[in-house]
Simulated scan of single mutants.
Amino acid sequence: MHARPIPSTSQPLPVVGCGTWLGFDVGSDPVALAQRGKVLDALFAAGGRVIDSSPMYGSAEQVVGELLGTRAAKEPAFVATKVWTSGKRAGIEQMERSMRLLGVERVDLMQVHNLVDTHEHLATLREWKAQGRVGYIGVTHYTSSAYADLEKVVRAEALDFVQFNYSVADREAEQRLLPLAQERGLAVLINLPFGGGKVLKALRGRRLPAWAAEIGCDTWNEVLLKFVLSQPAVTCVIPGTSRPEHMAANAKAGEGEIPPPAWWQDKVAAIVA
């Protein structure tokens, strides 16, 4: 799998990771846990490392922590989670709980989820970063209606990462956020690369166009993710899944040729038609 550097440190990061919203909220169900373990196996087998979670995602942090703690092979995961509450003390307590659930003393990336009490939490995170409790800090959102607020924070704060939505069906981020992230030297995580599943649902049953083979794609998953990765500002895309075969298909998008944005100009209309 290709890797791209985190601008603030030049640390390479594999370009396809795994989101855990919905798919990893399975509690202690042994069958579901085993299947999610196979999802992570597929991620690591393909060279991926990024796992993104949040206290908002039910039991997902606990599930990720259990699965990482019981893996026989100890590939180094890049664990990202979030703080999603109001107030300094509540934020500290929530982040400490997340670390316990994830089974880590240091989180690779801690993000302020959906810009909730951003200024307060970033102050804490800068202290934690200086102490080595977190590796990187960032902010997130999942809808283009929040781009104006996200842009203000990105311009005003010293960050390492920004996370937001981008897909072939929602390209507004191309206008300001992606260029701004490059300008500010931020790593970019992309959520909802399938448009919350709507794009894949609309493509179900449709044959891949002939040009998909030109870039080594066997599935629509790969096509849609390669589209996202065509943007040079994107560091890593984090599609969520609960199925190992889908994780393997997603991860394959990070291999081989990733065409530049111009290559897609006459192909996007055919995808979203």
Rank of each mutant, 00 (worst) to 15 (best):
H2Y: 04
P7C: 12
S10W: 01
S10N: 09
S10L: 07
S10P: 03
L22T: 11
V26H: 10
S28A: 15
L33K: 11
G37A: 10
G37D: 11
V39H: 12
V39L: 09
D41F: 13
L43F: 09
G47N: 11
G48Y: 04
I51V: 15
D52L: 05
S54G: 05
S59K: 03
A60C: 01
V63T: 14
V64C: 07
V64Q: 02
E66Q: 07
L67G: 01
L67P: 05
T70W: 00
E75Y: 01
A77C: 10
A77K: 00
A80Y: 08
T81P: 06
W84G: 00
W84K: 00
W84S: 14
S86Y: 06
I92C: 01
I92N: 07
M95D: 02
R97G: 04
L101H: 08
L102A: 07
E105I: 02
R106Q: 08
R106C: 13
D108H: 15
Q111F: 11
V112P: 08
N114M: 11
D117C: 09
K129T: 10
R133A: 03
V134P: 04
I137M: 09
I137W: 03
G138Q: 13
G138M: 06
V139A: 03
T140A: 15
S144K: 10
A148Y: 00
E151W: 08
V153Q: 09
V154I: 14
A156N: 10
L159M: 06
D160E: 14
Q163I: 02
Q163F: 01
Y166E: 08
S167K: 06
V168A: 15
V168Q: 07
A173F: 14
E174T: 13
R176N: 09
L177R: 05
L178C: 12
A181K: 06
Q182Y: 04
R184N: 11
G185C: 11
L186I: 00
L192C: 03
P193C: 05
P193I: 02
F194H: 10
F194D: 01
G196N: 09
K198S: 13
L200C: 02
K201H: 14
A202H: 04
L203A: 11
G205W: 11
R206F: 06
R207G: 02
L208H: 12
A212E: 12
I215D: 02
G216I: 07
T219C: 05
T219A: 03
W220G: 13
E222R: 02
S230I: 01
Q231G: 04
V234D: 07
G240Y: 05
G240C: 06
T241L: 05
R243T: 12
P244N: 15
E245W: 12
E245A: 12
A249H: 03
A249Y: 00
K252T: 09
G254D: 13
I258L: 07
A262V: 14
W264I: 05
D266S: 14
A269N: 10
